[in-house]
Design a protein around this nucleic acid. Sequence first.
DNA 1: GATATTGCGGATCTTTTTAGTCCGAGATAG
DNA 2: CTATCTCGGACTAAAAAGATCCGCAATATC
Lengths: 155, 155
Amino acid sequence: MPVSTEWLLHCATTLAQLDPGTTASAAQLAQYYDLPAAYLAKQLQALVRSGALAATTGPRGGFRLARPASEITLLDIVEAVDGAASPYECREIRQQGRGALSPEECRNTCVLAEKMADAHEAWRRSLAATSLADVLATLPPSAPERTRRRMAGAT
Amino acid sequence: MPVSTEWLLHCATTLAQLDPGTTASAAQLAQYYDLPAAYLAKQLQALVRSGALAATTGPRGGFRLARPASEITLLDIVEAVDGAASPYECREIRQQGRGALSPEECRNTCVLAEKMADAHEAWRRSLAATSLADVLATLPPSAPERTRRRMAGAT
DNA sequence: GATATTGCGGATCTTTTTAGTCCGAGATAG
DNA sequence: CTATCTCGGACTAAAAAGATCCGCAATATC
Ligand code: FES
Ligand code: FES
């Protein structure tokens, strides 16, 4: 799992603390966390493509949340940057080799593939249970003001 | 996630269907599923190292379950081949850059890292809930006999 | 006791993914 | 209208992981 996952999770949390209508540029966010600006910009695009963020181009432009913070889950962000596909991929190994099963016996999906899919679904469900609003609720009340202040001074 | 994960899950299920005391060599298992024998052998070693399988060297040697099938979970197998580390790695990004938090504010772990760890734990819990014995229970009663028969004819 | 067979570990090569950089299209402010 | 600032996608290098190979140690058989 790429390092940029952590970047985007934190960037989204930061954007959620901004006033509505305000945007933060990729350069600002990069400076805020000391990250390579060009590469961060590339990853932010993935979140725009997925519909979690909205981007405004031109001077005074930048990124903002495309939806209320309560409607953006951690799963949305993680799947946008890391891909939504399950890491486990069943290649129907049971139909190959000397022990191959007949096509009739394979009408229902393999038990092992099913269990692996269940585990992946449990992982997804756990991440989908937390929204950006939930994350903000755990922060001290002074955090948003502080974030806005430190962000304003950036280039 | 490597393709070999599926291989090992099925190989372990196959071994669980053998009579106690009987072993199956890597070549036999490879032929049974039409897999590259050399690579499969290497992955089987990982399961031996983890303690899920036991190996006997020499003629008539091979692999067998090291424990009763009810004591081997899918998580044991997956973590043996794919590693037990969480795919998400927190690099403490919150302490870097212009928005860096003070060390005092970072005494407790970051909320985002905690949520990601929770999701990973949910995934683990789901896989640990199923043992090889549970998998065998879903198979038709004729399956073990059939597996033993087809395995016997291999080189 | 010699021999064939099997697992074991390390060294090696290939492929995929990740990390990083770059320049162009488009929009806003002046 | 022009200059400047922003995202957007294409391109290139680096690292990690996957996959493969070969030689060594151990054991049962003959
Ligand atoms: S055939 Fe793919 S998991 Fe069983
Ligand atoms: S600092 Fe690593 S997830 Fe927040």
